[in-house]
Amino acid sequence: MNHRKVHTFAICAYKESSFLEECILSLKKQTVRSKIIIVTSTPNDLIREMAEKYEIPLYVNQNGGITQDWNFAYQMAESDYVTIAHQDDIYSSHYAESVIARMKKSKDPIICFTDYYEVRNGKKICSNRNLRIKRMLLLPLRLSLLQRRIGVRRLVLAFGCPICCPSVTFSKRKITKEPFQAGFRSDEDWEAWERLSWLKGEYIYIPRMLMGHRIHKESETTNILKDHARSQEDYIMFRKFWPDLIARKLTQLYASSEKSNDLDV
């Protein structure tokens, strides 16, 4: 069945990633056919060659930046459901099929997201401290009845961000405006989930590892952690849920999780 009008993978490509083709191939191997587009604010020969080789529409964003690129990708997708794919990540062949089925079954989906594994030095890591903590935080959302509860969603997000951004598919019927806000460099996804958590509807969680998130030295997350830009944003996010003293303590605890982005961990 052709789902190209229903679902789009919008790949955000940045500079010259050696992993871009692997990402594209994982999307080409989906069990259902979704529309695929590439967006970039750093056009170059590699990105153009990949777009031409795999006959994928390429759109150039003149206003670059993480949130700007993600929002541009969201705007360029014309389908009801949109997955903003990161160029370094890979997707299970059943990702689109599973997500589309669950969102169609839902009466009022906001987002749908899946469990994931990490890719470190070319190896598939299905469990480590970081992944175990996130799965524990997401336990309440395994129950479909609780996916509609605003209080439950906010409780899940109150101790950190357990939702893997590239695993998320958005409902454009529900989220008519740009989902991400400028001003954050590290927690732009957490800020979006917190803001969207106030909406009536469902946060659909599929507890299956349907995508792989790559951890490597050139990733933007790794670069952010090197200059410690994350802690200030973490504090801002915790203050949306907790009083000052608790927010500061949680920020300190959360900082220890930054070590999970070290390839040697």
Rank of each mutant, 00 (worst) to 15 (best):
residue 204 I to H: 01
residue 204 I to V: 10
residue 205 Y to H: 02
residue 205 Y to S: 00
residue 206 I to N: 00
residue 207 P to L: 00
residue 207 P to I: 01
residue 208 R to H: 04
residue 209 M to N: 09
residue 209 M to D: 08
residue 209 M to S: 14
residue 209 M to L: 09
residue 209 M to T: 11
residue 209 M to F: 01
residue 210 L to Y: 03
residue 210 L to V: 06
residue 212 G to E: 06
residue 212 G to Y: 02
residue 212 G to W: 03
residue 212 G to I: 06
residue 212 G to H: 08
residue 212 G to N: 04
residue 213 H to L: 03
residue 213 H to E: 11
residue 215 I to L: 15
residue 216 H to M: 07
residue 216 H to N: 13
residue 217 K to Q: 15
residue 217 K to I: 15
residue 218 E to R: 08
residue 218 E to M: 06
residue 219 S to A: 08
residue 219 S to H: 05
residue 220 E to A: 15
residue 220 E to D: 13
residue 220 E to I: 15
residue 222 T to Q: 14
residue 222 T to N: 13
residue 222 T to R: 12
residue 223 N to I: 08
residue 225 L to M: 11
residue 225 L to D: 07
residue 226 K to T: 09
residue 226 K to G: 01
residue 226 K to M: 04
residue 226 K to V: 07
residue 227 D to A: 04
residue 228 H to E: 10
residue 228 H to M: 05
residue 229 A to V: 12
residue 229 A to D: 05
residue 229 A to K: 11
residue 229 A to I: 10
residue 230 R to N: 15
residue 230 R to D: 12
residue 230 R to M: 10
residue 231 S to Y: 14
residue 231 S to G: 05
residue 231 S to P: 04
residue 232 Q to F: 06
residue 233 E to Q: 07
residue 234 D to H: 14
residue 235 Y to Q: 10
residue 235 Y to C: 13
residue 236 I to A: 13
residue 238 F to L: 08
residue 238 F to C: 03
residue 238 F to K: 06
residue 239 R to A: 02
residue 240 K to M: 02
residue 240 K to A: 08
residue 241 F to L: 02
residue 242 W to G: 04
residue 243 P to H: 03
residue 244 D to C: 08
residue 245 L to N: 10
residue 245 L to C: 11
residue 245 L to R: 15
residue 245 L to D: 14
residue 246 I to G: 09
residue 246 I to T: 12
residue 246 I to N: 07
residue 247 A to E: 02
residue 248 R to I: 07
residue 249 K to D: 08
residue 250 L to R: 06
residue 250 L to G: 05
residue 250 L to C: 04
residue 252 Q to Y: 07
residue 252 Q to K: 14
residue 252 Q to P: 05
residue 252 Q to S: 14
residue 252 Q to E: 13
residue 253 L to N: 13
residue 253 L to K: 13
residue 253 L to E: 11
residue 254 Y to H: 11
residue 254 Y to I: 00
